[in-house]
Amino acid sequence: MSEEKKPGWKELPEGDVLEAGTAAKFNVAGWRSEKPVWSKDNCIQCMICWIVCPDSSVKVVDGKMTGFDYDHCKGCGICSHECPTKADKRAIVMEQEKK
């Protein structure tokens, strides 16, 4: 996160109110020690990874899995664990993050 100057009380909107969805600007990539890597060829487009991801980090366009949002994926591995593809044709594998 870049250190932005935080607003003073006069600039801040009154009443502890926020616009929707501002957490999308918060990057949690640093939480990850592993990352999921998708193989399009092995994917059967079942959408399971999308529904089980706790961090809304499976990118879906027009009802199709298209990859991961690495700004928000925390590398929990649920998607890979739940992906129904066979051991020799995994659509998601977890890889060590380079430190």
């Binding site: 999308a24 949690v28 925390k74 929990c76």
Partner: peptide
Amino acid sequence: NLKELSVRQDPLTGGHRACAGCGFPQ
């Protein structure tokens, strides 16, 4: 089905601070 649901707007964004692998956001 999941495909139909996946075109609806996701009610939650990423970038929240639940632990990796938490069970409630889903």
